[in-house]
Amino acid sequence: MVNKYSVVIDADIARSSGIAEHPVSSGSRALLESVSNSGHKAAICPTLMSEWKMHRSLFARKWLASMIAKKQVNFIKPQSTTTDLIKNHLENAKYISIASKDAHLIDAAMISDKIIASNDDTARGVFCELSECYRGIRTIKWFNAITDREFVSNFLSSDCFVPEKYYVVPTKV
């Protein structure tokens, strides 16, 4: 039996999940379909819901409405702890700005099943750097709907082993 997860899905996936066959659109759409078809839930905090409402495609709007109707959305209210970690442990102003914009994803993942789906590899890289100082986020899996398309689909349908490269961990040089 496959475990059922609550996945934090960034608004960039909602925005790009159109009906085009472009790799970005089709990858984002495939991720949303994998979540619902495998019986998983979406974990959404108020900040993320606001972003979804502002940026979602028509496909994402219908997908979210369907997920809500099927009671496959976990509405969560995480504490905002990542913002303080960013301010206390990052020095580069550009990194602080990047991480602050997506801190709610980390907060939401920490109180759900520690899975983020986002196409923002820059933010992932900054959080990987932050994980050197704050080990608590190293348990979060971060999937890119485009570059990790096949793997994330396999993971969501079969609960397979997840290699370290998908976790928010410091990059090895």
Rank of each mutant, 00 (worst) to 15 (best):
S66K: 14
Q79N: 13
N88F: 07
T81H: 09
R61F: 06
R61S: 15
T81R: 12
T81K: 14
R56K: 08
K71W: 00
M54C: 02
S80Y: 05
L85A: 08
F75W: 05
T83E: 13
W52D: 01
I86T: 07
N92C: 01
E91G: 07
K87V: 10
S80T: 08
E51N: 05
E91M: 03
R61A: 15
I76P: 00
K53T: 02
T82Q: 01
N74A: 15
S80K: 11
K53V: 02
L58E: 10
F75G: 05
N88G: 00
D84H: 12
E51K: 08
R56H: 02
H89L: 03
N92A: 03
R56I: 01
F59I: 11
K53W: 01
Q79A: 07
T82F: 00
W63C: 01
L85Q: 07
A69D: 11
N88I: 07
K53N: 13
L58A: 11
N74K: 14
Q79E: 14
L64H: 04
M67T: 06
H55A: 14
N74V: 07
N74I: 06
H89K: 09
V73K: 13
W52Q: 05
E91L: 06
K87N: 13
L64R: 04
D84S: 14
I68M: 09
S66T: 15
S80W: 04
I68E: 14
A65P: 00
T83I: 15
F75T: 02
D84Q: 14
A93R: 09
A60S: 15
E51V: 04
N92R: 02
F59W: 09
E51H: 08
N88E: 13
A60W: 01
L58R: 12
N92E: 06
R56L: 03
A60V: 03
W52Y: 15
A60T: 13
W63H: 03
F75K: 03
K53Q: 10
R61W: 04
A69E: 12
L90M: 07
K77Q: 10
L85Y: 10
N88M: 10
Q79Y: 08
A93S: 08
M54L: 12
